[in-house]
Computed example of a mutant assay.
Amino acid sequence: MYFINYRSSLINSNLFINSIRRDRSILKTINGGVWDLPSPKNISYWWGFGSLLGLFLVIQILTGLFLAMHYVSDLNVAFQSVDSISREVEFGWLIRSAHANGASAFFLFLYLHIGRGIYYGSYLYSHTWNTGVVIYILSMAAAFLGYVLPWGQMSYWGATVITNFFSTVPYIGIDLVKWIWGGFAVGYPTLTRFFSLHYLLPFVIIAFILIHLVFLHDTGSNNPLGLNSSGDKVPFHPYFTIKDLFGYSIVLFLFFLTVIFIPDYFGDPENFIEANPLVTPIHIQPEWYFLPAYAILRAIPNKLGGVIALLMSILVLFLFPLISSSCNRGYFYSTLHQILFWFWVFDILVLLWIGARPVEEPYVTIGGISTVLYFSFFLLTPILGWVNNILNKNNING
């Protein structure tokens, strides 16, 4: 009798929760956008990188808020305040390591997320794709600003080199650099501004993520087959929440292994030396997730040309919805497109390696060739699309 009463009360409570979840306006919106969101039943773990990005964005914001409580954006004590966080604040070393390595994890999954979108043709949902590219650009800006804050040697000289590129802007370049610096060199105003913007940008990124999700829920998720799966969907919960939680457990386990046992593996040793404007490091390089773009920048001998190539290497992602000419969605069904895609991925890995090499031969030549191949991908994609359409038409007629 007790078991029957308990079971009936449990059923009634579940019905009550479900009625609230579906009837209240705000909860109904959240429920339709997350809990009961219709999702293609054949999407794989490659579709879990978006939720992993959300997880690491939360980690970055929470750890960043704790770090901001102890960080001092003063030119004279910024480096010491970061050192104090690691040595004197309780679990400060863990929070700082999680924040630094969280940026690496965020960009790793961001690149995998973009690569999956290209391979399976998610860029055909142009609004969703374009807002995602904007998020990528804002994330790069936030990461660069955050890299300057520890005020080590690589932070200072990285800020000096990168901000100097704005001097290539015709007519207003020099004044623009002085305005960014707040003076005639990277100094106290620069650090204060970078800290303020680095604190603000994650919340701007959240706003664009919400827009990104609105477009995603409006068009629906893509799937590996690239087919219209309107009649073959299941609720997001519990089918994909369980899958995401499984991915979270594996990724977080590996992440905290890195944070605890090799926290400085992805850092540059030069950045453990306080910034000194009178001593230039032998080799200035950014974090690993900027190295492909940095290699493209260095591949062009002309300063203005290098800046334009750097910007185009990122902005060219907006072209994917426009250059897609194949009758098939993405690169999954075309052998020619698959060969081109994986060759492009290999070329990006070469650029990543070149970005960490000194500016000397043969790295200069390899970097120049890899840059040409990087941009050739966007020229060959529509051509291969037309070839693929002709082959498919001939196969149908044959």
Score class of each variant (00 low, 15 high):
D244V: 06
W181A: 09
I211Y: 09
L213P: 00
H198E: 05
Q80H: 11
I59P: 02
P292C: 08
I205E: 06
L65K: 06
P150D: 05
R116W: 04
F208Y: 13
F165Y: 15
V345I: 15
L349M: 13
I369S: 06
A98C: 14
G385W: 10
T381K: 00
H217E: 03
S313T: 05
L52T: 07
L213C: 01
I348G: 00
L315V: 06
W47E: 07
A295P: 02
A207S: 15
L213Y: 10
F194E: 08
T190H: 10
N164A: 03
W353F: 15
F49N: 09
K28Y: 07
T335E: 06
W47N: 09
T365K: 11
F184V: 10
F318A: 09
R87T: 11
Y239E: 09
I314E: 04
S334M: 07
T258W: 10
S51V: 12
W157G: 14
V148W: 00
F194M: 11
I242W: 10
F332T: 14
L27R: 01
G306N: 06
V372T: 13
I137G: 09
E361T: 07
L351R: 06
V372D: 07
L380A: 15
V316F: 09
E88S: 14
G187I: 02
A293P: 01
F91I: 10
N395C: 08
V364N: 11
I323S: 02
L351Q: 07
P277H: 07
N76L: 13
H212M: 04
I242P: 00
S139R: 03
N228A: 13
I209K: 01
M1S: 07
N388F: 02
G187Y: 03
L108Y: 05
I137H: 04
V307W: 13
L108Q: 00
I366L: 15
Y6T: 07
A207W: 03
F377Q: 10
D83P: 00
L322P: 00
T192L: 13
W344Q: 10
P224Y: 09
I339W: 11
L373Y: 01
G385F: 10
R96E: 05
S25Y: 11
G32Y: 12
F144P: 01
I314V: 15
